[in-house]
Design a protein around this nucleic acid. Structure first.
Lengths: 377, 377
DNA sequence: TACCTCTGCTAAACCGGTTTAGTGTACCGG
DNA sequence: CCGGTACACTAAACCGGTTTAGCAGAGGTA
């Protein structure tokens, strides 16, 4: 009646449990006729080895977790994620390893990681000094971190944020843009955005360099940078546009730190009647497939998302297999500007001295960043 | 040295394993001081209950599988999938259930399902008569099937394919289109496309109705339908366009049975210098977010993808919890045509009698459907 | 004959928890 | 003083496999 267990098969076949186990896993230890008899009886009984029990005995789950900073709903709103998953899948599918999405549980990443049924973790979008991550590290699971500068002695895969951002900024500068907004994205639910650390800081630094500004300088009398922050989704991009437009003084160009944000921003701008790129230039970051679909086609900083996924999976599997905790290094993948059609010279070069306000408030929150999740203290 | 086990904590605290287990799972069975002492010692020792062992004992994995017909790489090339996952996540995140993608293992779905560490399955894009699915059913796991007419006595969530397709066809007919191509998509790697069963058949039937054609009729002297087939990806869409264009006689409208295919097709058509929608009307199916981003914005049949995911997850969790195998019914969600900018009257109404070939070959394969995977015999 | 090796199989330990069925004690009411 | 009950905790069974160590018998060798 109930699902047959290995002992049932063994009894029916007149052999030991070991023999049945061998029949499935190590046929060479068994006489061929015995093996076939066992398999036949197993088939008759409809026996399938229990995946859970097998995993407990083998002490591995054949699963890896992709730890994300937001709910599945929110994180998959960004086409970046499926691209990353495709890359991870390229490696894992062949290895018979399943990929599990690990979103925060009631706001806590540590909690979700503790219960996760995995042999290792890929960490995405988490600032490396996040308090909960210390717990994650203590868990002892092999880890690969993405887009951070360092994470314990785990392997790190990142991209050259500052170089890419710098290229994009230089591109805009060369087109003549002097009044530019930067739309940062929040990496994690409970730390809306940190301008001074992590990915945002690296990209901002690149942007400033590209415009010839000093570090931490938002204006030099000629060029003015306005920095806002929003959630990483189409809606976030729309909200960012509304916020910039609300001032009544739109910049001539907007640099979104995520393509999906740029897409939302472009949609809102178009809805508002602006003609892009003439009345507003927009750049993105990531180069997701949709960057080539939208109108105008998006000028953006390309990063090798799938390759990132592939590398992360490869490094993680190595770490899982070797157990040797030889210090794994940081791997920085190149970025490059892809110029498409969303950037153009500003319609009228504003005289630099026209601006009176030299130091606008640096950070504005355009929209709530998460979908209501609070992190644990 | 090694990771502490429950027995270590128990010994150190001078209590039984049961007490330690209670401390974590059923605090009400324990005196508060005892509980705190146990938790303190657990913390000191760095003890975390083993997720695998816990699952074996509890006889549930707290994971559900999303069974897909292609590799992770291929399946996530279609933005439909992330949308579906978002819907599934809406339900599962809150229930503490993880979602695992279950792609075929060496071409075999049965093999991957057998080893999957899940309490239940959501089946996507699988023809219900697929030989391997019989094995899946025999596995005894609770199942919810998507987009099929029936699947044993499992719950089925589908959408009104024929009504949506009919609306789209009628829309094109009313615009004056009489020469139309239909681009079917292959649901599964090893069954490129079956015009006479499943989703493709339902949609084709709706299309024929919309154009006033009899079932199985591809031409009535006035209206001509050309049916081709391709893989469900941007590249598949491009390939479909190449194929249609190769004949030197493009239809005036193309109905793609997937938005991502329509997007690829539009990209290829635009690259070829066509002005859309005047020179070619295109309709899609699904209404993924990108349908609203591309140029021209895509006229498409909307289906509630996220809602589908939500319902599937809800039904599956019910089935898992209740164990009662009361026959679960089929739930058909509505579809509706969303008219955007990718459809317009044909540039010149071709006189119906201009066409000489009345019965073109019905099926053409535009591109290999999978990425090289073969199904098991 | 004694010893060794190889094949084919098994007993029992092990993976690390949860859960059932109690046990002993204290307290309560009658 | 006795029976009943609640409380706090435990022993042992259980989940269902894998794996180690070893045994029996056949065959080969000196």
């Amino acid at each position: 009646m109930a699902r047959p267990r290995i002992a049932d098969v063994a009894e029916r076949a007149g052999v030991s449990k070991t023999a049945v186990s061998f029949a499935f896993n190590q046929p060479e230890h068994l006489n061929e006729t015995t093996r076939e008899r066992i398999l036949l009886i197993a088939e008759e009984l409809g026996y399938r080895p229990s995946p859970i029990a097998r995993r407990l005995a083998r002490q591995r789950t054949d699963q890896i977790g992709l730890v994300v900073p937001q709910s599945t709903h929110d994180i998959f709103a960004n086409p970046f994620l499926p691209e990353l998953v495709r890359g991870i899948g390229d490696v894992c599918d062949g290895e018979g390893i399943a990929v599990v999405i690990v979103p925060p549980v009631r706001g806590s990443i540590a909690r979700s990681v503790e219960g996760a049924l995995v042999d290792g973790l890929i960490l995405l979008g988490l600032p490396s000094d996040h308090p909960e991550l210390i717990k994650v590290q203590r868990g002892g699971l092999p880890v690969v971190a993405l887009d951070v500068e360092a994470f314990g002695n785990a392997a790190v895969i990142a991209v050259d944020d500052s170089a890419g951002a710098e290229q994009a900024a230089r591109h805009l500068a060369e087109l003549g843009h002097r009044d530019v907004a930067v739309v940062l994205i929040a990496a994690h639910v409970d730390s809306p955005v940190d301008e001074h650390a992590g990915m945002s800081a690296r990209r901002l630094a690149g942007i400033r360099t590209g415009f010839g500004l000093a570090p931490d300088q938002d204006s030099d009398g000629t060029t003015t940078l306005r920095v806002v922050s929003t959630s990483v989704s189409e809606e976030g991009g729309r909200a960012a546009f509304e916020m910039l437009a609300a001032d009544g003084r739109l910049p001539t160009a907007v640099m979104a730190m995520s393509d999906i944000t740029a897409i939302g921003l472009i949609a809102a701008a178009t809805d508002a009647g602006l003609r892009l790129p003439d009345e507003l230039s927009v750049t993105g970051f990531d180069d997701i497939p949709a960057a080539g679909w939208i109108q105008p086609r998006l000028t953006t900083v390309h990063q090798p998302i799938r390759e990132k996924g592939r590398l992360a999976a490869t490094r993680l599997i190595e770490a899982i297999r070797e157990k040797g905790d030889r210090r794994a290094g940081t791997q920085i993948l190149p970025t490059r500007l892809v110029v498409r059609a969303s950037t153009a010279p500003p319609r009228s070069h504003p005289a630099p001295e026209r601006r009176t306000q030299t130091n606008p408030p640096p950070i504005r929150i355009a929209a709530p960043v998460g979908a209501g999740g609070d992190a644990a203290p």
